[in-house]
Design a protein around this nucleic acid. Sequence first.
DNA 1: TATCATTTTGAGACAGTTTATCAATTTCAA
DNA 2: TTGAAATTGATAAACTGTCTCAAAATGATA
Lengths: 144, 144
Amino acid sequence: MANTHVKEMQALKEHLGKHQLKLTRQRELILNAFLRQEHITAEAMYHQLAKSDPHLGLATIYRTLNLFCDAGLAQARHFGSQTKYDNVSHKGHHDHLICTGCEKIVEFENEEIERLQEEVAARNGFTIKTHRLELYGLCSRCRH
Amino acid sequence: MANTHVKEMQALKEHLGKHQLKLTRQRELILNAFLRQEHITAEAMYHQLAKSDPHLGLATIYRTLNLFCDAGLAQARHFGSQTKYDNVSHKGHHDHLICTGCEKIVEFENEEIERLQEEVAARNGFTIKTHRLELYGLCSRCRH
DNA sequence: TATCATTTTGAGACAGTTTATCAATTTCAA
DNA sequence: TTGAAATTGATAAACTGTCTCAAAATGATA
C-alpha cells in the first residue's frame, strides 16, 4: 500500500524534526488511516486499526491524534461527550451548524465569510492559519 | 437580596407549570446565581454556591442547569472537556483572534459576518442561538 | 391548615472519555 | 553499533456528567 499522502507526511516530519520527536511505525500507520477520513473519533480509529494491528494501544491513538493537532494536520472538536478529530487537509475547511436539540451537524462553506475573516485578521496584523466556526441553534424539526 | 430577574423567573415558572415540575428553593437560588453570569460551568457554579449553601449537591446543579436549557433560559456548549451553560438573555459576542505563537487573544465583532451566519443558518432551516468563531494564526510580532 | 401523592434533593456510586504512569521497546544521531 | 532519549502498550487514575435511592420538600386538594 503506497503512501498517497506525501505532503502531509512531509508536514509531520517537519514538525517532528522541529520538536525532537521521532517517526514511528505507529505514527505512520495512524497518519495514513487518519488522512482517509474526514473526521473521526479516537475510539473509532482504535477499532478500525485493531483489525490490522491488534496491539495498537488506545492511548497511542489519542497521543498521536493530539500530535497531529500540534502539527496542524488535525483539529479537535468537542461535541457531546466525545472529541472528533477533523482532517484539516480534507477539502479545504468546513464549518458547522450544530443543532442543540438533536445534535445533528450540517457542514457548510461560505467564501464570503472566509474573506471577511481574512479582512478582520489583516486589520489586526494577523495571518490566519486555520479557524473554527460553529453555529449553535435549532434545526427546523427541533424548533417545533 | 431582591430577585431582579422577574422575567426569567416567570419563564421558569411557566415551564415548570407546563411539565408538572415544582419550584424549589434550590431552583430559585441557582436561577438567580446563573442569571448574574454570562456563561458558567456546573463545577464553577457549585463552588460559587457552596460558600452560601454548602449542602447544595453537584447533581442538583447539573439537573437544574439542564432544566434551564429545557426552559430556554440557558444553552449548553461544549468547550474542551467541559460544558459551559450560556445565559441566553445575555447576547454578547465573543469572537477571537488567537495567536498560536504568543497566545495573545484579540476580541472582535463583525456585523457583516454575523449577518452571513444568519443567512447560512436560514438556508439550512436553522435558528441560531449562539456561535463560536475563532481565528488561529500569527500576530505581526510572531510572524517575524 | 392538614393530608398525601408526587417531585426533588443530596450523597455517593457509577459510566464514558481522556490522560498519566512506567517498564520495556524503538528510534536515530554519533 | 551504541546509547541517550523518545515512544509504546497496558492499565491505573482522573475527570465530567448521570444514575440511584432514601429522605425531604412541594403543592393540589380537602
